[in-house]
Design a protein around this nucleic acid. Structure first.
Lengths: 168, 168
DNA sequence: TGACGATGGTTTCGATTGCAACTAAACAGG
DNA sequence: CCTGTTTAGTTGCAATCGAAACCATCGTCA
């Protein structure tokens, strides 16, 4: 066997790329399925999607916040936040209060109706997550927690570096 | 404290829903970041997106397959597969060969050019996944593996049940 | 004060998505 | 055979998304 042919060999069999074992793929499939299962809880009941759900939960958690704050905390693009808030505002689930000290931003918070929905959904969502976690061996749960944190941190790091390189 | 007020209490503080600790949310964020980081490897270089990437990898792995087969193996909607294949076909990375025994379907496979790209990308992708995994404590990796499998299984189960109920 | 860059948020626009309707071919079962 | 049903794959359409442009306001510095 020459060097040439060794280089051209498709791949070492033991290193073959199998999609179903490939971490990024598995994460994506898992996250989508979980997301879809969860959204059954609120989608039909209240006709809202994931972005609206996140806004609702964030405001439920913090009480009052700017759109920027919501975006930062829920990892959503500002246009997504803007549109989700607009929808919730139309439905009278969220109110906008001007910030006298800075008229560019506005403070958002749940209306009583929004709070009602939040109070109804939050325990159901927690229960859902709990049920989901119960399918994972108790001994593995902490590891999953750590792993998700590490993977999230590492990949956002990679993206940042690549972005700063590309943006030169 | 009456029963009434206990029922109306927003939530027990210890059970409060915190988005940043909520498993479905964390999975989604993690998967998106990882996916985005990975796509840097192939997106710019070859101007393809996730669906095309998955078709490429699936065909690289199995050699020859129908669109249905690809969809099943890569968890993609048939329209996504159809469009991804159409794009790759236009780029001469994939060929379609009629199945004499059943003219509805067609066998798809990589062209030599497609195989070249696969052979270039696969090791880089594997390396990426490896690097990513290295950020996770070695002791936690097997647990992550099991947890992802369980969560995937459980949530697709939930969705299936809900779907069959709704589809009555 | 007044000009300029930065910032919060909205809007416009092109691209991607998934559902539903469709086409064409296979496979009943009489 | 014909007829109705199922299946592989494509296409039309409406909804969603994110990048970039945009608008209004703020902070800075001369």
């Amino acid at each position: 066997m020459t060097n040439e042919s060794a280089q051209k060999a498709p791949e070492r069999p033991e290193a073959a790329l199998k999609l179903e074992e490939f971490l990024p793929y598995r994460l994506n499939v898992c996250a989508n399925l979980v997301s879809q299962a969860l959204s059954r809880i609120y989608a039909d009941r209240y006709k809202i999607g994931v972005p609206e759900w996140r806004v609702l939960v964030t405001l439920g958690q913090f009480g009052m916040m700017t759109a920027k704050g919501i975006g930062g905390h829920s990892c959503m693009h500002k246009t997504k936040v803007s549109r989700a808030v607009a929808l919730l505002e139309r439905r009278k689930l969220v109110v906008r209060r001007a910030n006298r000290a800075d008229l560019r931003e506005a403070f958002l918070s749940l209306t009583p109706a929004g709070r009602d929905i939040y109070n109804e959904l939050a325990p159901i969502a927690l229960d859902f997550a709990q049920k989901l976690l119960e399918s994972v061996d108790a001994a593995d749960r902490a590891a999953l927690d750590r792993a998700l944190s590490k993977l999230t941190e590492r990949s956002s790091q990679i993206t940042d570096i690549a972005n700063s390189r590309g943006g030169r």
